[in-house]
């Protein structure tokens, strides 16, 4: 790990001022991604700004019913927060499916959003990677790409976004509050991460020096069932090969509203509007789920080692929808 300067900040303004617009400066909170990548020589910041002392550690319900999460709330606190468990069970499930107890104790909500890909070529400073080093090429394209994305890929990059938490947020819907040298602004969660396109190095919409301060979840869907299904090689402590987060509300056996997001298969947290359309006003039945799964994966592009992710993701979708529907039916039953 190379050397870097280190500064603490006590409030957002101080943090932003200390950071400036210098792209060699990085904010650090949990550090679980940043220090990992600094040790690998993949990230080489000259200075870190520690934001752990910023007053961004609270979870609160706003007057309009939305839930506002401070940037430095840890994954553990968020997963176990009573409001999250009661009103956003999908988020709790997704968080607990990610990483390990220790990492969840460290990782923060904003940090999880800023998580980097696990592409081994990105993580190897001597490999060709357009995301790490624009124009250097993509060793994954014709290399070992078992873990790589099939949705949202470009001819520049096929790296998977690894987060579980973000899948739940993509389904639930959320707004990010950003604060930077040019002031404060908001952006929809699903607009925050970018597809690689021909600029894979631009992973998100943050401007230089901007900091995510809050994540505000949309109000939950009335009476929706929730299910997060993560499929992976081993049973825990591993990134997804394919995951599906489903929210479904049912009226008289017909799907009233459905949200579906996918992880492990896409270059960003993947909200599938195609699947949602296929579900809308259809009977809550396996045949419907299968149609939704087809729709979700119709544009998938496989590479040499990851073609299995397409049928695997379909299976994850069908099962997650089935379980979410069960959950909705259970929730609607009189207690």
């Amino acid at each position: 790990m190379r050397t870097f300067a280190y500064r603490t900040a006590d409030d957002v303004t101080q943090a932003v001022t200390t950071h400036g617009a210098d792209d060699q400066v990085a904010y650090v909170a949990g550090g679980t991604t940043l220090l990992d990548l600094v040790k690998l020589d993949v990230m080489r910041p000259t200075q870190l700004v520690d934001i752990n002392r910023l007053p961004l550690g609270e979870v609160e319900t706003l007057d309009d019913g939305r839930l506002r999460i401070g940037a430095t709330v840890t994954n553990t606190e968020l997963a176990h927060h009573p409001e999250v468990k009661a009103r956003y069970p999908l988020l709790s499930q997704a968080l607990l499916a990610g990483a390990s107890t220790q990492l969840r104790n460290m990782a923060t909500t904003a940090g999880n959003i800023m998580q980097r890909t696990r592409c081994p070529y990105y993580r190897d400073a001597s490999a060709a990677c357009n995301r790490r080093e624009p124009g250097s090429g993509c060793d994954a394209m014709h290399g070992i790409n078992r873990m790589h994305a099939v949705l949202g890929v470009s001819d520049q990059c096929i790296a998977t976004h690894p987060s579980d938490m973000c899948i739940a947020m993509a389904a639930i819907g959320a707004t990010l509050t950003l604060e930077g040298p040019d002031g404060k602004r908001e952006i929809a969660f699903n607009d925050f991460h970018r597809l690689p396109g021909d600029q894979p190095e631009k992973e998100h919409e943050l401007r230089p020096g901007e900091l995510i301060t809050y994540i505000t979840l949309d109000t939950p869907i009335e009476g929706a069932g929730a299910y997060y299904l993560k499929l992976r090689d081993r049973a825990s402590y591993e990134f997804a090969l394919a995951s599906a987060g489903a929210l479904v509300s049912i009226q008289d056996g017909v799907i009233h509203e459905a949200r579906l997001a996918l992880g492990g298969v896409a270059t960003k947290p993947w909200r599938s509007h195609e699947a949602e359309q296929a579900l809308h006003n259809q009977p809550a039945a396996v045949s419907t789920f299968e149609m939704a799964a087809e729709a979700a994966m119709q544009d998938a592009v496989p590479h040499e080692h990851n073609a299995f992710k397409i049928p695997l993701a379909r299976q994850a979708i069908v099962r997650a929808l089935r379980e979410a529907c069960k959950d909705a039916e259970n929730a609607n039953e009189p207690r």
């Binding site: 696990r118 081994p120 873990m147 090689d233 081993r234 049973a235 825990s236 402590y237 591993e238 990134f239």
Partner: peptide, 11 residues
């Protein structure tokens, strides 16, 4: 230890 998968406790 992340990309080379060994058996975890949950397995």
């Amino acid at each position: 230890y992340s990309d080379y998968i060994v058996t975890s406790h949950a397995d």
